[in-house]
Design a protein around this nucleic acid. Sequence first.
DNA 1: GGTTTCTATAACCATTTGGTTATATGTTAG
DNA 2: CTAACATATAACCAAATGGTTATAGAAACC
Lengths: 115, 115
Amino acid sequence: MVIETPSLELDDEEIDRIFQALADATRRDIVLRTLREEVSISTLAEAYDMSFPAVHKHVAVLERAGLVTKHPSGRERIVRAAPETIRRAQHLLARYEQVWRDRIARLDALLAEDA
Amino acid sequence: MVIETPSLELDDEEIDRIFQALADATRRDIVLRTLREEVSISTLAEAYDMSFPAVHKHVAVLERAGLVTKHPSGRERIVRAAPETIRRAQHLLARYEQVWRDRIARLDALLAEDA
DNA sequence: GGTTTCTATAACCATTTGGTTATATGTTAG
DNA sequence: CTAACATATAACCAAATGGTTATAGAAACC
């Protein structure tokens, strides 16, 4: 039996799915909306100028990316944002910024050395 | 004449392009690589198991997203990361997290009120 | 029980994406 | 000048994306 190691590290495909999911204005709006309050898919669908199945698909993309979760409640599916995944994406970008700052620090050190 | 207002706000299409560009492991690696040091496209191309034109296209996607800039140097095109765009994306996600925290704060306030 | 509502999914379509090979142009090196 | 190298771009292709309509199942309402 394989023990699923609950790695905090994001693998490449996971990151692909997260950024891909965020690369669409409707989906970003769904994330914002569900961060503020839990809503059903059909309630979400009312907000956008597209069919229910289109919104349903957007929610599925967000779910596969781990950005939202769905919870049955009677005939409805309540959509909840998953802030932890957003936080991980944010931290990934923060690490990119750190790489840049490390480079600047190296350049500064080199300049100080030469002076 | 239209004065181009240098808005710090990211419009939807700009954000689409940024996240879309980040949704590919090769492109994220190019960003990381160019954050550390400026490199030519052909130097980049050596690092990946794909043709030069494929890498050239990835760089073009990153450039359209404002994540890198290209600078001619003789026959080469030096690719530089644009950390400011990365920072903006990071801040956007930080705002999403803030929306979540605001909600928690509201719920906490409600609980305190009821107590 | 029948109707309505919410969800799920299939089938389809146009466009975009991410790769390829081939070719042309510009720049440097000898 | 010529050869080699770096870039750019066109044409092509398969797969993925983002939408549609149609259909079916499940839960709730009266």
